[in-house]
């Protein structure tokens, strides 16, 4: 997760979203009334809290887990959740587990001139201070989106951890061009 230059960048993964299916229908009310840390709003799906991960459960058996900080943790949490559902008496299987989204933050050791950065990377980058303080840079090939803040902070979203790291590597030289050294 180091960039090509001599500076080491720490990419901190803040959220991993994953989905899986249980291949059976779930009675949400049962889960809500028999589980400890469960919130059930009948109008919507349903939320079940676990240590570390939060899962949204639908009666169709599809489950979305959020809040993990690594892919392994997401999987572990998902499996634990499936086990809990098994204990509740559902014939739960564990299928189609997939990490769908990863959110990471990363901080550059310099400030960035957003206007120059947007100018240099015209069609891909867009900076609208009226709408959002960050410049948005979308890497189509990686399906990753990078939000560049003037302070040098980056927010990266991508389909998996690897793409996120690649995206940071990809964008680093571009940011390096538009850097503004901080005055100490």
């Amino acid at each position: 997760m180091e960039s090509s230059n001599d500076v080491a960048l720490d990419i901190i993964i803040t959220n991993v979203v994953a989905v899986f299916r249980t291949r059976c229908h779930l009675n949400l009310r049962t889960i809500a009334l028999e589980g400890v840390n469960v919130i059930y709003k009948p109008e919507y799906g349903k939320v079940l809290m676990k240590p570390r991960i939060t899962a949204s459960i639908w009666s169709s058996g599809k489950i979305i887990c959020t809040g993990a900080t690594s892919e392994e943790e997401a999987k572990q949490g998902a499996r634990r959740l499936a086990r809990t559902l098994q204990k509740l008496g559902f014939k739960v299987r564990f299928a189609d587990f997939k990490v769908v989204n990863v959110l990471a933050v990363c901080s550059m050791p310099f400030a960035i001139r957003l206007i120059d950065f947007t100018k240099n990377n015209r069609p891909i980058a867009s900076y609208e201070p009226e709408l959002h303080p960050a410049a948005t840079y979308r890497i189509k090939t990686l399906k990753a989106t990078v939000q560049v803040f003037s302070t040098g902070s980056l927010t990266v979203t991508g389909p998996n951890v690897q793409t996120v790291a690649t995206a940071v590597e990809h964008i680093y030289p571009l940011l390096f061009e538009c850097q503004k050294p901080l005055c100490k």
Binding site: R23, L33, E34, G35, V36, N37, K50, Q76, R79, R80, A82, R83, T84, Q86, K87, L88, V92, R93, F94, A95, F97
Partner: peptide, 23 residues
Amino acid sequence: EDTENGELDLSGIDDDEIELYLL
């Protein structure tokens, strides 16, 4: 690693702990 055959791999899951989540 669990094999993706739809069966739930129970390794690393503490059943006692999970019991605690049920009322």
